[in-house]
Design a protein around this nucleic acid. Structure first.
Lengths: 218, 218
DNA sequence: AATAAAAATTAGGCAAGCCTAATTTTGCAA
DNA sequence: TTGCAAAATTAGGCTTGCCTAATTTTTATT
C-alpha cells in the first residue's frame, strides 16, 4: 500500500501530465504540492525505485503504467467521496474538497466498490469531473471551454476547471448549476465579456476569466 | 489536531481505564497497541506535555478531562462509521472494524455531525456498543453479562464484549442477532455450559466463554 | 561560445514514532 | 531487609517526509 504522501504525489503528477502534456518538472510538482524542490527530488527517487514514476534525463519524469493506475484509483476515490458528501450528507459543492482529500486515502477496495454501488455508479463528481470506473476507464466527456465558443453556440454546463470556493459560490450566486443549458448570446470584442442566456431566459454577463473556467458539452 | 498515533493512544487508554479502573500501566498500553514499552514511554511524555494524560508517579497515568473528551470523540467517530458501513453500505458486522479504524481519524466536525444526522442519530453501533452524542454523553445502557444471570432469567441481547470475527460469525451461525430475546434455560454446573432459548423457541447450548461475551439488557 | 538565471540535486538536519539494548526503579517474597 | 523479577525509563538508532543551504546542471540570451 502507498503512503498518503506518495498518493498525493501520484495525484499531482497525474494532473500535471493531464494539463501540460507528457513530462513533469520537479519545480512544477513542488509548486502544486506546496513543498520545496529538494523534497520532491527526494521523494521521486523513492518512487522511481518503486517503479511508480520514470525519469528521463533532463526532460523530467512521468508516471509509469503502475503509477498511472494508482493515481486513477485515488482520483476515483476522491470523486466518489465527493458525490457521497454532496448527495447523501448534504454538503455544498464548494465544501467537499478538503474532506475528500482525507477520505481518498482510506485503504479498502471493498469499501470503494460498495460506495460506488451505493451512489449508483455516478459518472461525474459534484463539479462535473468524470469518475473513472473500477477498471480505471473514464466515460469520455467531450466538453469544451465556454471561452472557446463563438456567439450563438449553445450547450449544457457540465463542469468547471476552477474548483475554488470563490468561483463555485459565484456560480451559485448567478444561478448556474451543473447540467443547466447555456447559450452564448454575445461576446464583447473589447473586454471579452460574455453575455450568456441561462435557464429561464435569464441573461448574465460574465468575464473571460469565468468563461474560461466553464466546461460545456453537447 | 491530534495525529493518528495520538488518537490511537487516547482510544486505547480510554478503553483500558473503562475496563480496569483508574490508572493505566505502560506495559498494558504497550500490549494492547502491539508496540514496545519504550515507545509508549516516549509518546506519553509528549502527550503529557500536551495535557492529554496525567502521570502519577509510580501509579501509572490516566486521561485528563481534555484527553477523555478527545478519546470519546474518536470512539464516537469509529462507531458512527461502523453504523454507516453496515446500515448503508451493506457490510457484515464482522467486517467493519478495520475500515472504521481508518475512518475514525478523518478530521471534520461537520462531517461527523452530518453523518450522525444521516444515520438518524443511532444510539449503538452494529455490535451494540453505545455511541456518545455530540456532547460526549452516552445514553447509559445497563446491560449485564449473560454469564452473570441465573437460570430462568431473560432479556434482550444488546451487545458483545468479544468483537472478533470468529465470535461474531459464531453468533450468526447459531442465529443470534442484536436485539433478539434470550432466556437462560439451564446452567450446567459441571462445565458451566448455558442452555439458551432463542427466538422461535430454538434451544442452543453455549460455553461459558460465549456466555461471558454476551451482554443482556432489560 | 560565454555567462547568467533557472532548475535540479546533494548534503546535512529535524520531528514523529517506532525499535533494541542497557539501566534504573518498584514491588514482592523469602 | 534483602534481593530478584517485573516494570519503566534512558540512550542511541532507524525511516519517512519534510527543511535550508550549498552546489551542480541545464537552458536561454547575447
Amino acid at each position: 500500500m502507498h503512503s498518503s504522501a506518495e498518493e498525493n504525489y501520484l495525484k499531482a503528477i497525474y494532473k500535471l501530465q493531464e494539463a501540460n502534456g507528457e513530462m513533469v518538472a520537479t519545480s512544477a510538482l513542488a509548486q502544486v504540492l506546496g513543498i520545496h524542490m529538494a523534497s520532491v527530488t527526494d521523494m521521486l527517487k523513492k518512487m522511481s525505485a518503486k517503479k511508480l514514476v520514470a525519469y528521463q534525463k533532463s526532460k523530467g519524469f512521468k508516471l509509469t503504467e503502475k503509477g498511472r493506475l494508482a493515481a486513477i484509483g485515488i482520483i476515483r476515490k476522491h470523486r466518489l467521496w465527493e458525490v457521497f458528501l454532496v448527495d447523501k450528507l448534504g454538503f455544498r459543492w464548494d465544501e467537499v474538497h478538503e474532506i475528500a482529500e482525507q477520505l481518498e486515502h482510506i485503504h479498502s477496495q471493498e469499501l470503494i466498490d460498495k460506495l460506488d454501488a451505493y451512489l449508483d455508479f455516478p459518472k461525474a463528481d459534484p463539479h462535473g469531473d468524470p469518475i473513472p470506473d473500477a477498471k480505471g476507464n473514464f466515460a469520455l466527456n467531450k466538453s469544451v471551454l465556454l471561452a472557446a465558443l463563438p456567439p450563438g453556440s449553445q450547450g449544457k454546463f457540465t463542469g468547471v476547471t476552477d474548483h475554488s470556493s470563490a468561483f463555485l459560490n459565484y456560480l451559485d450566486k448567478i444561478g448556474l448549476s451543473l447540467g443547466d443549458p447555456v447559450k452564448v448570446k454575445e461576446v464583447e470584442e473589447y473586454d471579452k465579456n460574455y453575455t450568456l442566456m441561462l435557464k429561464g431566459k435569464k441573461a448574465v454577463v460574465v468575464s473571460f476569466k469565468v468563461a474560461n473556467s466553464l466546461l460545456i458539452s453537447e
